[in-house]
Simulated scan of single mutants.
Amino acid sequence: MSRKKDTDYLTISARIHAMENRMLTRERMDRMIDARDEGEALKVLSECGYGGTDGVSGQSLEGLLAQARAETFGEIRGAVPDPRVAEVFQMKYDYHNAKTLVKGETMGADASRLLSPGGRYAPELLADGYQKENLSGVSPAFQRAVQEARTILKETGDPQRSDVALDRACFGEMAQLAKDCKSAFLEGYVRLCIDAANLRTAVRVSRMEKGSDFLLQVLLPGGNVSEKTLSAARGEDLGSLFQTGPLAKAAELGAKAARPAGGPLTAFERECDNAVTRYVSDAKRVPFGEETVIAYLYAKEAELTAIRTILASRRAGLDGAAIRERLRETYV
């Protein structure tokens, strides 16, 4: 499939700009946080196009968010000139499902109820193909990764190694698909996501006081900072590795938190996510093109996370200041 021109995205870009008006803005988040009760908070969601929110329980909330995510992917994938742009965002759910199925098999448990919709492959078909050891209709990369993870877990009993294998395959497939789309913006997004994941890993490994050899085994390839460079650096040096890129502030916070007694990771984690949000926010300067679609898909997933964070925090009895501290920057 050849690269689509930006003018091929005129219609979907205009449609997305209209849909952005219904997204969860910071003002709407504040209204949810300050609402007198959950019912009033849920009314805000109705303004954003979420129906059936009266009396939402914890379980039905997850169902509501999962349905919204699947509908968003289905709608955009069916309307966008190049569906591979949407698939870059969908495949993380396929790989989540793969982790769930592999671990479920090892534990002798039925993991079907834990599978997430929204991926490229229907969860029920994925589970059926996995049980029959016949994963047809999936990408060769995904098929190889599942088999590798399955073998690792059977031979070593180490779920972390199995997860790392699937994470590498997931980001590798994302990077390849972005390259195939010939979108520099999408490729940059994937590289930044890899950098953010590796930075998080480096900080946690440093806090655990594990060495560079262990770190190198769990880092992901394909970022702007190589695994070799990152694994050779000490925790306090992380800031210098990312000082010229979008993760500069996150790395500075990470360097301080990398010590065994480095304190909470809340601010660091939030800044990692904010760096990605600021990257996709550059799409606002582009009136039409794949950038608009990429930014919307990212923003929609961030919106679902924000909804979950606000409602879960309210139920946990947190005050407004504590809830706001957990929230990330918004795209709209």
Score class of each variant (00 low, 15 high):
S2M: 11
K4H: 11
K5R: 15
K5C: 00
Y9C: 01
I12Q: 02
N21V: 09
R22S: 14
T25I: 07
E27T: 09
R36A: 15
D37W: 07
K43A: 13
L45I: 08
E47H: 01
G52R: 07
S57L: 04
Q59D: 05
Q59P: 00
L65I: 10
A66W: 05
A66C: 02
Q67W: 01
A68T: 01
R69S: 08
F73E: 02
G74E: 06
P81L: 02
P83T: 09
V88E: 04
Q90F: 03
Y93V: 01
Y93A: 13
G104W: 05
G104Y: 07
G108S: 02
G108L: 04
A109D: 08
D110W: 11
A111E: 07
S112W: 05
Y121K: 10
E133L: 03
G137P: 09
G137C: 06
V138S: 05
Q143R: 14
Q147G: 14
E148H: 05
I152Y: 10
L153N: 08
K154M: 07
D158A: 12
D158H: 14
P159F: 10
V164W: 11
V164S: 04
F171S: 08
M174K: 15
A175Q: 15
C181H: 04
S183E: 05
Y189N: 07
A197Y: 13
R200M: 14
E209N: 12
G211R: 11
L215R: 15
G222R: 03
S226I: 09
K228V: 14
L230A: 13
G235K: 12
T244D: 15
T244I: 00
A248F: 04
A248S: 15
K249V: 13
E252S: 12
L253P: 01
G254Y: 03
A258C: 15
P260A: 05
A261S: 12
A261E: 13
A261K: 13
L265T: 09
N274G: 06
V276G: 09
T277A: 14
S281E: 15
A283L: 04
E290C: 05
E291F: 09
V293C: 12
V293H: 08
A295F: 01
A299S: 11
E303Q: 07
L304E: 13
I307Y: 04
L311Q: 03
R315D: 08
A316D: 05
G320E: 15
R328V: 00
E329M: 05
Y331K: 00
